[in-house]
Nucleic acid binder design. Structure first.
Lengths: 214, 214
DNA sequence: GTCTATAGCAGGATAGAC
DNA sequence: GTCTATCCTGCTATAGAC
């Protein structure tokens, strides 16, 4: 068990180096890919020496793991935001607006250029980093899906909606909502993200198709 | 304009070399990825010299393009099969079994290990080969979707079903059918393909969710 | 822990004989 | 067109001084 501040005072000084390396590596990996990004360029972008990278992470694979697991933090933050929104619903007439807003932010997040780039990166290296890919999937898209399912189950328990299979409905909702756009975007990097009108249309369409919420 | 047989007789003899190289490169790219596969290993696997690879394709990028466009042939064959099946439906009571069979084969194809590997490969290189990725998407998943939409429109015109938005229904059908499995499989290489029971369950679920076909 | 310098190796692409 | 042999560049990872 480690207690913050229990170590020598100088120890916290090396965190900026690690953080700078992770930040630089994240941007480069997302832009150029894992294999095409040399440790030289990562070190230069982080303004440290190449050896510092190896001292901090041991090898390039572990740096990659740190990068991938690092970007899941935003997904976790998004998940807690989702559950907060759904937990705040108390009247039946508030369900629909809340779900609408939730889906809109969900779609915008999944289809954002950065999240798409992360998906491409992890999928690209899934064969070489199978456990890492599985862990990313569990932490990011999987966690969001489970959060939405839990929220729907909670709404059902509180009598605000009537959904028998929350996991199934959450999955249907997700893939009717963003499936086509996500599929297209993965193969069209650089294509513009959906604008506000498009996002609204996606939400309306999904609510129309997935009956228990329409 | 080129006429087959118009060239010197010896010309057709170099097609086996090209084909062998494409076959070998396809297997290696799918298994190891584009960047991780050296031209040396491709040449060895094709039982030709490395120089022959460069004589035939100029550089590695063009070989990659030949590989990716080559694997779309099976998708095109699948598309013609789909339209044949739907065009053969003549009685209203034959629609549902035909659609069921179609969806089953569709799901099995999309979730097959080989097609998944192709998806990972093309997505992995989408940033470096944007036009190629777009062309693959147009020829393979896009073409299948358009074929299904055209089939649904044809069934509607012949009064066998009543679908107002064939493109939309085809897309919803596709992503409710395979969206979750596809998403999971892309991040879990080596995971077993869905068995027959699972495929049947996917089909039933999709038919239940997408109303115009249930 | 951090730097400069370098080992060791594999990659894509080419030269030149046949 | 096909082969063998080679060039050169870039990579990951390490050595050794401070």
């Amino acid at each position: 068990m480690r207690v913050d501040g229990g170590g020598p005072p100088g120890r916290r000084r090396d965190e900026p180096a690690r953080a700078a390396i992770v930040r630089a590596a994240t941007e480069l990996f997302l832009a150029e890919g894992y294999q095409a990004t040399g440790t030289d360029r990562i070190a230069a972008a982080a303004a440290v020496s190449k050896q510092t990278v190896y001292n901090q992470f041991g090898d390039k694979r572990r740096l990659f793991a740190a990068v991938v697991l690092g970007v899941t933090a935003t997904a976790e933050a998004f998940g807690t935001e989702l559950s907060t929104v759904l937990a705040a619903v108390s009247r039946p007439e508030d369900v629909k607006p809340a779900v609408r807003g939730l889906m809109r932010r969900w779609a915008a997040a999944v289809l954002s250029p950065r999240v798409l780039a992360v998906r491409r990166l992890v999928i690209a290296e899934a064969c070489r980093f199978p456990e890492l890919a599985a862990e990313y999937h569990r932490r990011a898209p999987g966690a969001t899906l489970r959060t939405v399912a839990a929220g729907l189950a909670d709404l059902t328990e509180r009598g605000l909606v009537r959904i028998e299979d929350p996991e199934g409905v959450a999955a249907d909702l997700a893939f009717v909502l963003v499936g086509a756009e996500l599929d297209h975007a993965l193969f069209h990097p650089g294509a513009p993200a959906p604008d506000d009108e498009r996002l609204d249309a996606l939400v309306e369409h999904a609510l129309q198709v997935v009956r228990p919420l329409g």
